[in-house]
Design a protein around this nucleic acid. Structure first.
Length: 474
DNA sequence: TGAAATGTTGGGGCG
DNA sequence: ACGCCCCAACATTTC
């Protein structure tokens, strides 16, 4: 009887998992395996928020596997060495895994393929994307660097296959190989800063399913407008679940019914799924972009070193209420509304002239949905130096953004409670409020809430000047 | 998936 | 009735 190792990576689910069905196909036994290999992630090993999520997600996966007569084997160490060991211990003739497209993950895959040699079959499946990155090419055979033609090209391809439900049973090996405990991976924080995360999230497959159900029930039909209002749950909030593969994009696509004949709001939402595909497409084609701008002229951009400014940004004390609200939401819950992500990113890169790589690092450590492809694309977009990036002159005005998308100030009031009693008229610009108004609201600028660390108009001019330095003589 | 500066238009007040 | 101005609303361009 053949044994297959099902190597779990960012695909921590049983539902709609081609690899799982592939592994069970021959009727042999299946050994579900997770390898904790932070060294293998190179310079981008999971941050604290991601580790917190992973801990929960692994427990959830183990529980699901046990409910179908199996379990999760956990090992730590170099992926290639671990797989070689587990192959020896189980006599497996095949390893099945989901593909990943981050540079280090690809190197890891290559070294696994090498270590397994020709005796063991190594099957890599595309279970976390709708479209394989290398399968989408321009007429000239190049990767896409602009989203719209990329997504149009994807949608022209063969239609999305049906989803597969979770198997009811998985054949266990006669004896299980050695396993470490999830606890022993020490993924959970040593000091208890994770209360806000635990309140906000339910990692694992069932949490993903209920998020999707809630989104379909109450938010998708008004997604176009709702997604821009940070004070409400107007987005799917599926990003961390998608990152860890607790739900497949194909399941989402099929649950919603795809783009054919879909309404405007549904199409808009699926376009966001498309941006995720695009991010992976770009990272697979340009692996250097995690650390270097895709557009070469930006490598001579005069970024500033500004430790004080960077720290104020991280902690949410810039004096711009919408920026501070976003940064505090991130710190507390491991997530930030996307509209606000754009604003805080623009603020760091343009108002403070601090490199987008600093922002990417902070998000990487604090976001539960930290994904190297999406994080890289997003920050290069904000920096104006990436694929299909915002034009350099697009500088968000945090006051106007706040007044436009948080008109009544509910979002700011929630995350910056010291401003909660400031009237909506001045909530996004407290420094313009008459002293009497501030006094009534219990605000003392510079004491209970900071004054703006930079003046918007001045910072805007400075950013445009800096950017003209690299575009001059173009 | 912007904002600000600048230009144009047209309604209405008013001498 | 007419010209003039103001200015809001909208459009265009520029950064």
């Amino acid at each position: 009887m053949t044994a297959t190792i099902l190597w779990f990576r960012n695909d921590l689910r049983l539902d709609d998992h081609d690899g799982l069905h592939h592994a069970a196909r021959t009727g042999g036994t299946v050994v579900p395996l997770f390898i904790h290999d932070p060294e293998g992630e190179g310079a981008w090993r999971p941050g604290a928020a991601s580790r917190w999520w992973l801990d929960r997600s692994l427990r959830s996966l183990d529980e699901s596997l046990r409910s179908i007569g199996s379990r999760l084997v956990v090992r730590s160490g170099d992926a290639a060495e671990v797989l070689r060991d587990v192959v020896r211990e189980t006599g497996a003739s095949r390893v099945v895994a989901s593909r990943r497209h981050e540079p280090s993950a690809r190197r890891q895959e290559e070294s696994v393929a090498m270590a397994l040699g020709s005796d063991v079959e190594f099957d890599r499946l595309e279970t976390t994307l709708l479209f394989s990155p290398e399968a989408v090419r321009t007429g000239g055979g190049d990767p896409y660097r602009v989203f719209t033609p990329f997504w149009r090209s994807c949608l022209r391809q063969a239609s999305i296959p049906a989803s597969k439900s979770a198997p009811r049973a998985l054949k266990a090996p006669r004896s299980w190989p050695r396993s470490e405990s999830i606890e022993s991976l020490a993924l959970r924080p040593k000091i208890g800063w994770d209360g806000g995360l635990a309140e906000a999230w339910n990692p694992g497959e069932s949490g993903a399913k209920s998020r999707l159900a809630a989104f379909r029930k109450s938010a998708i039909e008004s997604y176009g407008d709702g997604r821009d209002r940070p004070a409400i749950v107007g987005t799917s909030m599926l990003s961390p679940h998608l990152h860890f593969g607790e739900i497949s994009p194909r399941r989402i696509w099929n649950a919603i019914g795809g783009v054919d004949g879909a309404g405007e709001d549904t199409v808009k939402f699926l376009t966001e799924i498309g941006w995720r595909e695009f991010a992976h497409h770009v990272l697979a084609a340009y692996p250097g972009t995690t650390d270097e701008p895709l557009r070469g002229e930006f490598s001579r951009f005069p970024w500033r070193r500004d430790e004080a400014g960077l720290e104020a940004w991280r902690r949410g004390s810039t004096g711009y209420p919408l920026v501070d609200a976003g940064m505090r939401q991130l710190w507390r819950t491991g997530w930030m509304h996307n509209r606000v992500r754009m604003v805080v990113a623009s603020f760091l890169v343009k108002h403070l002239l601090v490199s987008w790589t600093e922002g990417a690092r902070w998000f990487w450590d604090t976001l539960v949905d930290a994904d190297l492809a999406s994080n890289t694309l997003g920050w290069q977009w904000a920096g104006g130096c990436g694929a299909d990036a915002a034009p350099y002159f697009r500088i968000f005005n945090p006051v106007l953004q706040g007044e436009k998308f948080d008109r009544r100030g509910e979002y700011v009031s929630q995350w910056v409670p010291e401003l909660a009693r400031v009237p909506a008229k001045f909530l996004h610009r407290p420094w313009e409020a008459p002293p009497a108004v501030l006094a009534t609201a219990g605000v003392r600028l510079g004491e209970t809430y900071p004054r703006p660390i930079v003046d918007h108009a001045t910072a805007r001019k400075r950013a445009l000047d800096a950017l003209s330095k690299i575009t001059a003589g173009r």
